[in-house]
Nucleic acid binder design. Structure first.
Lengths: 210, 210
DNA sequence: TAGATTGTTAATCGATTAACAATC
DNA sequence: TAGATTGTTAATCGATTAACAATC
């Protein structure tokens, strides 16, 4: 329940986007079929693991040939929910928020940030990379009216819980959290944290013990 | 070898920074002792797991009392290598790079970004949050002279491998990579990726299958 | 003392890796 | 055909969870 989504391990979910990226590049290079061995080579991983991961998306390959590149891309994208053009709100147009608004990669991942919110009035009314910045007071109302499902939280830690509460109030069902805090949310709300300190901890531990 | 650092599982390493943050706040609130139950409650985790995680740092507690807050902080910080005041270079002063330069949290994590590098001459010579931006040509030389150990890569994917090569050339031993690519590096160089698409994939899969 | 908590060892669970038949 | 690759089942490995004695 906790560690598997749809019967698929979370580690697998985390590797799929990388495979997708590799296969997309191969497609752009004109390749029609790709084997797990090919993918494994590109991502410095193991062919057996790649095969297992890809198998969990349900795509069917051909022995001795591999997978149809276009079909593989379609299936993986669908599996990740990247075909749904997920619309998102972002709260906190600081340095990180701005960086996220300008991050082109998201368009490849089916994420469409449709509005941003701030308390700082000097930012309200402006546009960042084509996305309009609203006053935070509009959050719940707009979320409800636009049926937005994803909320991106890029505010200082002390405000994150309040923003989360208000997003949920507005009907948002998934939170992508860049603030270094643990949030309390209802069971039906999905939360995913991007904790830079966790990643940095792995790096510095390795560095200091090798 | 791959999955454990110093005999400690990577998942544990990723949870320790969170515990540290919680315990630091408790210290600032005047608490002298803390139990695993307390920490678990704060991070919505399990007391048994917290105990196991903390045990791997080697800190010793007192039955019925818990852990000395100051001692716990010291031990965990040491274990993560956050007491060494790790100096780092950052390459790529775009939106993300700028956000990272301004991210105050890093100072808590013993990370000190001492210089930034860019090819864009309009940025070279300026300072971002007190950190001077150098021309990329100075990278290897300065890294060598300053004995910098950590390199942060925040450039577009297509340039990441070149930057990595040059950092390694300059003697850098650990790479923190924000570009969505897989790098080829020698065995003695540590690499840690921050892959937003992996995190986003988990979020959207959950959202679309719940 | 009683009871909460640590420290440690064992049991369970799940992910990764290996093995192998089927196939084109 | 021969051999590379898939699909699937089994074996291994490691992390999490549980159990329990020791302790203050």
């Amino acid at each position: 329940m906790k560690s598997k989504i749809n019967g698929v391990p979370v580690p697998t979910l985390k590797r799929l986007p990388l495979y997708l990226k590799i296969v997309k590049r191969m497609k752009s290079e004109g390749k029609a079929f790709v084997s797990c061995t090919d993918i494994a080579q590109e991502c410095g991983s193991d062919a057996i693991q790649v095969r297992k991961d890809i198998a969990s998306t349900g795509v069917v390959g051909q022995a001795r040939v591999g997978f149809n590149v276009s079909q593989l891309i379609d299936t993986v994208e669908n599996f990740l929910g990247w075909r749904n053009k997920n619309e998102a709100f972002l709260v906190g147009v600081g340095n990180l928020g701005t960086a996220l608004l300008k991050y082109r990669q998201f368009k490849e991942n089916g994420l469409n940030i449709v509005a941003a919110f701030e308390t700082d009035n000097s930012k309200v009314g402006k546009k960042v990379d084509g996305v309009k910045v609203f006053n935070l007071t509009k959050l719940e109302n707009l979320a409800e009216r636009m049926h937005v499902q994803i909320g991106i939280i890029a505010v200082p830690g002390e405000y994150a819980q309040e923003i989360a509460d208000r997003m949920i109030q507005g009907g948002i069902k998934a939170l992508w959290v860049f603030s270094p805090v643990v949030l309390k949310v209802p069971d039906d709300v999905v939360v995913e944290y991007v904790l830079l300190s966790a990643s940095l901890g792995v790096l510095t531990s390795k560095l200091n013990n090798q």
